[in-house]
Structure formats: structure tokens, C-alpha cells
Amino acid sequence: MAQNDLNKVPQLIIIGGSSGSLEATFAILSVLKPSFELPIVLILHRNNVADNGLVNLLSMKTHLQVKEADEKDQIEPGWLYIAPPDYHLLLETDGSISLDASEKVHYSRPSIDVSFETAAVAYGKDLYAILLSGANADGAQGLARIKENGGTVIVQDPKEAFVPYMPEKAMELITVDYVLDAANIAALLNELTS
């Protein structure tokens, strides 16, 4: 990594995905190096039943500690936070997480846009956002806000995405920084901490 890129190490990675995104999430998380400690916030559209299934599944794929986010959680290195079902997850400027039970956005709660938009404000250029497979326009607007605020935006290559609609929607709206398949998204993340 070039010397002048060193100050570009982000403080937070945020990942959003809908249908077909779980496989890509696994593919990324499972190859992160043990030295990778940047906190990750994960927003996946899923049904509204509260259970620990997703936490357990993800725990098997990553060395990061995994938890469903609670309100006021302080974001710590080495942790992966999952948005709980039926709540929006918002990022605060003090590095904590808020939850919100307001209207669905793009028929979704959690909504990727809500998390991305608040992360854009809270983290500015210290943010990497990744949008994965999905059959929904959620996330595109949020990526635009992240871009405006100086963050780095990555979409899963529509050719690889199980459902290409979501990354395509984002690419129509903004010029994304990277279009990568899951393996190369993981490689890019690994580079950040090398």
C-alpha cells in the first residue's frame, strides 16, 4: 500500500445486502486475515423473527466476534454487528449505535439506506461501504450520501451477484469506487490492515 494511503484506513466497514447476499457475506468474512480487526456493521434484509441463527452462522465464518446490535452499543474493533430484525440501525457521531422502529424504507426494516446515510454523516471519509446482491433499490441512495461525504463505496460485481438489481441500481445513481467480486472485496479489505 502506498505511503500516502496510510491515513485512509477507515474506522468502520459497513455492508448491506438483500436476497442472495448471505453467500457473498460468508465468502468475504471467511477469508479475512486474523489480523483484520476493523469493526463491521452488517445490514441484511431478513424476516422479522428474532433468533440467534444468523449470529451463530456468521460466527462460524469469521474470527471477529459477532453480535446482534443492541441500542447504545459502542462500536469496538474486532466486532461484527448485525442489524436486529424489525429495527433500523443508525450510526451516531460518538461511535455508538442507535436503533429506531420508524417506518419501513424500501419495504425494509432494517433499511440499508438508513444505516448508510447515518454512517455517512458519522464517519465521513473514514468509512468503507459495500453493497451486495439484492432485488431491491435499498442502499443506492445511502451509497450516494457516503460518496458525498468522502467515504469509499464498493459494489459486488453484478455479474457475480445472485440478484444483480441492487448493485446495478447503485451504479446507475453514482460512480462507485470499486466493482468487485466477493473474493476481491475480501482482498481489498485485507489490504486495508496490512
Binding site: 443508525l90 451516531e92 457521531t93 442507535s98 420508524s102 447515518t118
Partner: peptide
């Protein structure tokens, strides 16, 4: 009030 939510509202 929590700020991120209030700002959004």
C-alpha cells in the same frame, strides 16, 4: 433524544 434518529426525522 438520540441524535441520528432525530436528525433523520
Amino acid at each position: 433524544y438520540s441524535r441520528a434518529s432525530l436528525q433523520r426525522r
